[in-house]
């Protein structure tokens, strides 16, 4: 940064009005802010639990489901496909979480 850059910056800083006096602004804003509502976590967890229970109930009695084959040690095509699908979904979820973290 050279001398004339310093001069221009000094002029710009002097020209800037800077901090504005409150003059009742804070009170006006505080009167208008709504009460913060805490979002309850129980509906989400109830939904997740019910969803898992429903899935388990649906597939528990099916004799040839991929997961049952996997439990029996038989790696059928269906089992492999289910594992790849689960791995793919997990990978996508990780990428999404990383992208969200970057945005913040």
């Amino acid at each position: 940064m050279n001398h004339s850059d310093d001069s221009i910056e000094m002029l710009l800083r002097r020209q800037f009005e800077g901090h504005v006096a409150d003059d009742g602004f804070t009170e006006r804003v505080m009167e208008s802010i709504p009460a913060r509502r805490r979002r309850a976590a129980w509906p989400i967890w109830t939904g997740v639990t019910l969803g898992i229970a429903a899935c388990g109930w649906c597939i528990a009695d099916l004799p040839h489901t991929p997961w049952r084959n996997a439990l029996d040690g038989a790696m059928s095509t269906g089992t492999m496909a289910a594992l790849f699908a689960a791995a793919g979904i997990s990978l996508l979820a990780c990428c999404w979480a990383l992208a969200e973290a970057d945005d913040r």
């Binding site: 009005e17 504005v20 804070t26």
Partner: peptide, 18 residues
């Protein structure tokens, strides 16, 4: 929050005025 508001309103309003 009111304290945060008092601390920062001056420069936020100055920024927006410009």
């Amino acid at each position: 929050f009111e304290q945060l508001l008092r601390r920062h309103q001056g420069l936020v309003r100055a920024q927006l005025r410009r």
